[in-house]
């Protein structure tokens, strides 16, 4: 993702402190307040952009790293192996029930990593390491659930 240089970052736009651990209630409250009370003075597109990134735990983490000019692309060998194992295991599952159970396990793991991120925002190296794994698990889940809708 490319972060375009702006005068205000997304946290500032939504009048929040620049911390990963965002108070979701406050985020929505501020978003609604700005929507209602700053007609014309705030670019609605920009406000949506900021809200959309900050409300999502994964996009927010990536943005948080980008703000600090830390790459989100790098990956350790250890993680590559882990990813490979997960894909292999999933591919070996035959019935839907097992697949769903496996997905739920990954979901649980994903949520654990998110809580872990919140606890490690002062240690950027750790934060970035957790994020790499989180990003992988998330894209794995995204891919597996794109089948439910049929819109064409």
């Amino acid at each position: 993702m490319e972060v375009v240089a702006r005068e205000m970052n997304y946290f500032e736009i939504l009048k929040l402190p620049v911390t990963y651990d965002v108070d979701a209630g406050l985020l929505t409250q501020n978003y609604f307040y700005l929507l209602k009370n700053s007609a014309g003075s705030v670019n609605l597109g920009l406000l949506n952009e900021a809200y959309n990134i900050l409300k999502n735990d994964i996009k927010r983490a990536e943005y948080f790293l980008n703000l600090r000019n830390i790459s989100t692309e790098k990956m350790s060998t250890e993680l590559s192996v882990k990813m490979f194992e997960i894909r292999e295991k999933y591919a070996s599952l035959e019935n839907d029930e097992d697949k769903i159970a496996f997905q739920n396990e990954i979901k649980k793991k994903r949520n654990e990593l998110i809580s872990l991120l919140k606890k490690n925002e002062s240690d950027m190296e750790k934060f970035s390491e957790i994020f790499s794994e989180l990003k992988f698990l998330n894209s794995f889940l995204e891919k597996e659930r794109s089948d439910v809708y049929s819109r064409d």
Partner: peptide, 11 residues
């Protein structure tokens, strides 16, 4: 499910 209006870029 991204709120609109919205602009996103890719390089």
């Amino acid at each position: 499910n991204t709120p609109i209006p919205i602009t996103e870029r890719r390089e």
